[in-house]
Computed example of a mutant assay.
Amino acid sequence: MATTRKVKHSKPDVTIDLVAKAAGVSRATVSRVMNGTAKVSPERERAVKKAIAQYNFTPNATARRLAGGRSGLVALLMEESSEEFFLNPFWGLVVQGFSSTIADAGLHPLLLIRPKTGTDDSLFSTLRAGQVDGLAIFSWHRSIKTFEKLLDPKMAVVFGGDLGGSKKFPFVDVDNVKGGLLATRHLIDQGCKNIVTVTGDLKLQSARDRLEGFERAMSEAGRPLDDSVIIQ
């Protein structure tokens, strides 16, 4: 007499991709709903929560990162004084954008602030020890060669701006020369007579680029260029 035996089919692993497919949204949208890091339309939020409940999805991100030898930490490094960091609203926007983007990717943002006058490079020991998966640098006032010596060459690094012309690391920037040029031309076109520029820290490439744009526009208009119109 023939016998039959039931074959158990293993269920596929529940992943964020499966949840996203069931909800008809992207991975990033699922991450936003779970982390609460950004606004999502009510319809998409309901679809994601329904899919999460359907699959009983609970991501074990820590276990996955440990298995892959990764920490899930991505650091934002800035070399600024505490006064500059907390009083300049620009840095608040940088941190907000960085943190929300990293969290949307299911990773953990880490903020590192190094005083401009500091000499303690112990934080680079943490970076070299493999405790951070990636690094974004948005402010660096010293020689870029010094930075390259302190950092693990295998780490994923990106600069926020051209911080000295290093060819080893990618960077994201705006055209600061053109910005300085257009701003100065606008003042000239408005009939302004006494035009000066406040350069900021000329150790920064962005400050030098904006100064170049200012000088180019002033020269085009036949305006005098001397120390009286350039304030550092």
Rank of each mutant, 00 (worst) to 15 (best):
D120W: 04
L151P: 00
F85Q: 14
W91G: 13
P170C: 05
K116I: 14
F147K: 01
F90N: 11
P170D: 09
G165I: 01
P153Y: 01
N88I: 13
G97A: 11
D121N: 05
R114I: 04
F138D: 04
K154R: 15
G118Q: 09
G118D: 15
K116T: 14
G161M: 08
A136W: 03
S139V: 07
F147W: 05
R142K: 15
Q131L: 10
D175Y: 03
P153W: 01
D104P: 00
F171Y: 14
S122Q: 07
T126C: 05
F90Y: 15
S143E: 14
S82H: 12
Q131S: 11
E83R: 10
L135R: 00
A105C: 11
G92I: 12
A105N: 11
P115H: 12
G92M: 12
L110I: 02
D173I: 07
R114L: 14
E83A: 14
G161I: 09
T119L: 07
A103P: 00
S81F: 07
S99W: 03
D104F: 00
S100H: 06
R142H: 15
E84N: 14
G160R: 05
P153L: 03
H108T: 11
D121E: 08
K154D: 13
S100K: 12
K167R: 13
V172P: 10
G164I: 06
G106Y: 02
L163H: 07
I113R: 07
S139Y: 08
R128S: 06
D121P: 00
I137Q: 00
A105L: 11
L110N: 02
D104T: 10
K167E: 15
D104E: 15
Q96A: 15
T101P: 03
G165V: 06
G134Y: 04
L87F: 12
